[in-house]
C-alpha cells in the first residue's frame, strides 16, 4: 500500500512529523514534487475560480498523485493549539473528495476536530490502526516523529537567531504562511529577489510558535486563527530588530485580508509592504516593488 502526500498546505507545517511517522511505521509513501507550471495549471483548471491559490495548488498536487498511489493523505485540522484554523483546513478533505469524485480516490482518515490537547495523538492513532500497525509501534512512531519535528523547528529557529544577531545586512521580515514561504511558486521568487538585493530575509514562520502566540495576545484579543497569531506574534517580537516587513499573501486569502489590515494599523512606525500573489505569471512587478522598498529602507537607515 502506497500513501501519497501532496506537497501543499499543511505539509509545509508538518513535513518532518509526517515523513518520520510514515517511515517509523514502515509505510511506503511518495511526496508530490515541488510546484511547477504543470501542477499549477492543472490545479487552476480543476478548481473554482474564486478559490485561494494554495487550495488550487493542493488540487494540482493531488491530481499529480492520483494514479501513483493507493491512498492520499489529506488531513482535516479544525483547531491548532486551542485556536481555530481557516475554514479551508476544515473543508479540504470533503473538497478533494467531491472534486475528484469520478476518479475514485481514497483518502486516509485524519481528523483533529476539537480543542483538546491530545486530539492530534488520537487522530494519529486512528490512522495507524486503519493502516494495520500495532499500537505500541504507533505510539513509538508518534513520539519519534513529534521529536523530529520539534528538533527541526528548534534548529531552524536557532540558525535564524544567529543570523539575526550577526548579520550586518538590511534585515527584512517576511510574514507569510508556511505554505506560502515554502512553495516554489509563491515564496521562492520573493526570497530570491531579497537575497539578490543584498538583504537578509528573516522568516516569521521560523520563530517559535508557542512564544509567538503568547506575544500576539498583547496585540489582539479576539483573533481566532492560530497561524495568523503565530505570524502576528513574530512581528511583535522582532519589531525592533528588523528594518522592514513584507506581508506576502495569496489572492484571495480570507484570514490575511483582515489580519494584514490590523498589522498595518498597529505598527505604524514600521515600513510595511503588502505583496499579493495570484496565479498569474511574471515576477517583474514584484521585483520592482521590492527594489523600491529596499531603497527606501536604505535611505532611511542612512539618514538616521
Amino acid at each position: 500500500m502506497k500513501i501519497g502526500i501532496p506537497r501543499a498546505l499543511l505539509y509545509y507545517k508538518n513535513e518532518k512529523f509526517w515523513t518520520t511517522f510514515f517511515d517509523e511505521i514502515g509505510a511506503e509513501y511518495i511526496v508530490s514534487p515541488e510546484t511547477n507550471k504543470e501542477i499549477l495549471t492543472r490545479g487552476e483548471n480543476i478548481s473554482i475560480d474564486e478559490t485561494c491559490l494554495p487550495t488550487k495548488l493542493l488540487l494540482g498536487h493531488i491530481d499529480w498523485l492520483i494514479d501513483k498511489c493507493d491512498y492520499i493523505f489529506i488531513p482535516r485540522v479544525a483547531f491548532h493549539r486551542g485556536y481555530e484554523m481557516c475554514t479551508k483546513f476544515l473543508a479540504q478533505t470533503d473538497l478533494v473528495c467531491n472534486t475528484f469524485r469520478d476518479r475514485n480516490i481514497k483518502t486516509l482518515f485524519y481528523n483533529v476536530y476539537d480543542k483538546k490537547y491530545n486530539r492530534e495523538r488520537k487522530a494519529v492513532k486512528k490512522m495507524g490502526k486503519f493502516l494495520g500497525v500495532k499500537r505500541s509501534r504507533i505510539k513509538y512512531a508518534y513520539t519519534t516523529a513529534k521529536q523530529a519535528q520539534q528538533y527541526f523547528e528548534m534548529f531552524r529557529e536557532q540558525h535564524q537567531q544567529k543570523v539575526l544577531e550577526e548579520s550586518g545586512k538590511i534585515k527584512i521580515l517576511l510574514v507569510a504562511h508556511a505554505y506560502n514561504v515554502g512553495d516554489k511558486y509563491v515564496g521562492e521568487p520573493v526570497l530570491g529577489t531579497l537575497k539578490s538585493l543584498g538583504c537578509e530575509p528573516i522568516i516569521a514562520e521560523y520563530m517559535n510558535e508557542a512564544k509567538c502566540i503568547r506575544a500576539s495576545l498583547e496585540v489582539s484579543k479576539t483573533m481566532p486563527w492560530a497561524y495568523n497569531r503565530h505570524l502576528l506574534g513574530a512581528i511583535e517580537l522582532l519589531k525592533d530588530e528588523v528594518d522592514g516587513v513584507i506581508l506576502l499573501t495569496t489572492f484571495p486569502c480570507g484570514t490575511d485580508s483582515m489580519v494584514n489590515e490590523l498589522i498595518v494599523r498597529k505598527y505604524k512606525e514600521l515600513p510595511i509592504i503588502t505583496l499579493t500573489v495570484d496565479s498569474q505569471d511574471g515576477t517583474a512587478g514584484m521585483e520592482t516593488r521590492l527594489e523600491s522598498f529596499v531603497d527606501i529602507i536604505q535611505l532611511k537607515k542612512e539618514r538616521a
Binding site: S47, I48, E50, T51, C52, T87, K88, L95, R101, G254
Partner: peptide, 16 residues
C-alpha cells in the same frame, strides 16, 4: 459574497 471561503468550498459539492 466574493471570497466567502466556506461557500466556495461548498461549490464543488453543489455541482455534484
Amino acid at each position: 459574497s466574493f471570497g466567502c471561503t466556506p461557500e466556495i468550498d461548498a461549490m464543488p459539492i453543489l455541482q455534484n
